[in-house]
Write a protein that binds this DNA or RNA. Structure first.
Lengths: 170, 170
DNA sequence: CAAATTATGTCAACAGTGCTGACGTAATTA
DNA sequence: TAATTACGTCAGCACTGTTGACATAATTTG
């Protein structure tokens, strides 16, 4: 006579932990780490009326100047309608300029302006400081290990894009 | 006579790289890693008409059964109005139940139901698999190193909350 | 006990960022 | 010449965060 809808609603009082074969600890750490990691630039962006999406666009245009709209969409994995909104604002505020593609005139090559470069650096600075702080007592090998871990977290078919981006010079 | 508004709009053709004293490589890796990390549960959540916010609430209620609304807000760092929307849906769909606080009857202790526990595990499973895969050829010491790094990325004043959560058993 | 505070819920409005679908234009390719 | 491609744009919707305001019940304080 126990109503199943009532039985299902009974509170479970035991906590899930890593013994369920699931790495809750690491899942949580990634959540907290990423949240605080993104909170730094969010503060600055608010002053410009920008959001996280603007940051991403600005970041990749600075990392790969001259990339086309299609290439940017492929890196960000968003739709062109989503991109259009933020890209237009970045262009209107002179952070990014479009240059007609030299070979294919339909293409729009995206470049940062001095203003856009400066903002990209300002946004990256606190993030870089946070990373540096978290890495401060680690060896070069430790850093390489963490890089390998993060890269292995990325979907395999997208890892190629990461290798395109400029790396640390020798 | 060079108009500064034109001068500022000139495209910069050089890419920023780590030589600017900024760790762009790691910044990018964190972006890609976290995006793909969250994409796994997002697929499942869509079937329920839920979003990432539901996942977070469900996660922490399963990790700390009996926490109060105020405690949950403090962990998530969102406003109660933001929480209300998703919490109500999780309660209406019998994933979470509220129990009146035993000492303070104003409080609402939050517990997962069997259904909520099952969903939380289902959402965590692919994330855990991804982590496990990224860690597969690493030693125990490597894992500890990555954990320390991620924890060091979190704002210091919030690290105490992480220690409250259930850890891997001996 | 009465008054102030606390924990929670709720209504309304708005912002940012993603989505789908549809349509238009210019340039390139077949 | 016709089809395709690269890009832009309009409209509408969903999710999740925000502020501000107000309500209720329970606890604490004076």
């Amino acid at each position: 006579m126990t109503d199943s809808s009532i039985a299902d609603a009974k509170p479970i009082r035991t906590a899930v932990a890593d013994e369920d074969g699931i790495d809750f600890t690491m899942i949580e750490l990634l959540f907290f780490a990423y949240r605080d990691f993104t909170s730094d630039p969010d503060q600055i962006l608010a002053d410009y009326g920008f959001g996280r999406a603007h940051h991403r666009v600005l970041h990749f245009v600075n990392r790969r100047p001259g990339l086309t709209v299609a290439e940017l969409l492929d890196v960000l994995k968003i739709t062109k309608q989503s991109l259009a909104r933020v890209l237009k604002q970045l262009i209107d505020t002179d952070h990014i300029v479009q240059v007609q593609g030299p070979r294919d005139r339909r293409q729009r090559e995206l470049y940062p302006t001095a203003k856009g470069r400066a903002l990209a650096l300002a946004l990256a600075r606190p993030q870089s400081r946070r990373i540096h702080g978290a890495l401060r007592d680690g060896s070069v090998a430790d850093r390489a290990l963490i890089e390998r871990f993060l890269k292995a977290m990325v979907n395999p078919e997208l890892r190629a894009q990461i290798d395109i981006l400029p790396k640390k010079p020798a």
